[in-house]
Design a binder for these strands. Structure first.
Lengths: 210, 210
DNA sequence: CCAGACTTGTGGACACTGTCCACATGGTTA
DNA sequence: TAACCATGTGGACAGTGTCCACAAGTCTGG
């Protein structure tokens, strides 16, 4: 009797819900344990479905992981957007432009420190890293590019120094995030870490206005 | 008959050979597949010993992995030492000091690109990252500190800017290495990658002489 | 409107992994 | 020489990714 009820209930899942559920479950696992914690069977258990069901939506575990990685990367981009959005001052104001660059950098590093598992997961599977994601949203690199363009508009960064400036800055911020989030500097005291962040952002500022 | 021969052969291993063999095997696995590829059973197979034998030398797989990570980190430090050692010019010569800093940075990034598996493994288990390793050898951070100290001695880096300068620079180099070695910039063409490296090292130089 | 095709979930199986236990065996020491 | 200790063995177990055959809904063309 209960069997029939549950059996019929089995099909009541909205279309695509299992796939989304698996990604959400994978994100939760990644949050606490990083990419290695994204175990297919555990994710299916969380969704309430048998392990093999996952294979109707992903070719294998790697494909599930890739979807989780993409989601983690979107989360990082979203936090950068939020950080930049909180800075007031209109486009072209030199001070505001500087604060916006710093805000996206801070968001990046803060994400790595507060969510080391998700941060590691975001970079676990190398994705195409264009300025914009397929859905039209800005990627982290896109946010950086926009911030640098604004610094040029504001007259803070000279045009002839603009080209390629994304990469040294991305390197600095990404390296700081890695070292502090999961790397050797993971366990330094909070005050020390803040000093490292301060030093690094000051270094970037120096490099920009050279 | 053959049994007895092999049985007696079993004990012919030099003392500590199994442990060292396991680390060496783990290093080989890490070289091709990163930290996840360090699988205990495969390492024991390579050494020619039964899986459980590993538990006489390591509490569990994590402890084996930690040993492999430490070895990978020493390998990175060794390459930095080699790179610095190739630069001629005596201590205190400004040009030589700059070249030495660049040489250790280049060695760091080159290691990440040529041996992405080992690079990832070196940073997979966060170790104490002092200036010197327990065996007295310089760590990567130790090399960086020495290079910066020399820049001060050479008069390139002003003393009052010296303190804490390790961290922005380490961040820049480590970030570049991560992005180029295993991260989103892993597959950019060689020429592009070299340009990113050039830009980043120039950026660091600017920040130093600010 | 209904038979077949397609989609999606199930059940059972396999090889592989890390790890535990009891046991054997050789070298060392009291 | 007898007891001990370090080290390797053999067998077992749970957990994992993945494959195959099957079932039960859903959609579609005649």
């Amino acid at each position: 009797m209960g069997v029939t009820a549950e059996e019929t209930e089995r099909r009541r899942r909205p279309r695509g819900a299992v796939r989304e559920g698996l990604v959400a479950a994978g994100l939760e696992l990644a949050r606490t344990g990083g990419p290695d914690a994204v175990v297919l069977r555990e994710a299916t258990r969380m969704v309430g479905v048998v392990p093999n069901a996952a294979y109707r939506h992903f070719a294998d575990r790697d494909e599930l992981l890739a979807a989780v990685c993409a989601a983690a990367m979107r989360e990082l981009a979203a936090r950068m957007a939020t950080g930049a959005g909180r800075v007031r001052g209109k486009h072209g104001d030199p001070a505001a432009a500087g604060r916006r660059l710093r805000a996206i950098g801070t968001a990046y590093v803060t994400f790595a420190r507060e969510e080391p598992g998700l941060f590691a997961t975001a970079f676990a599977v190398p994705q195409q890293h264009a300025y914009d994601a397929p859905d039209g949203e800005r990627t982290p690199l896109g946010h950086l590019r926009a911030a640098l363009d604004e610094l040029v508009d504001a007259g803070v960064l000279r045009q002839e120094r603009r080209e390629g400036m994304e990469y040294p800055i991305w390197s600095s911020v990404h390296g700081l995030a890695s070292l502090v989030g999961q790397g050797p500097l993971r366990d330094v005291p909070d005050a020390t870490r803040r000093r490292f962040e301060e030093l690094t952002f000051a270094f970037i500022g120096d490099g920009l206005t050279h």
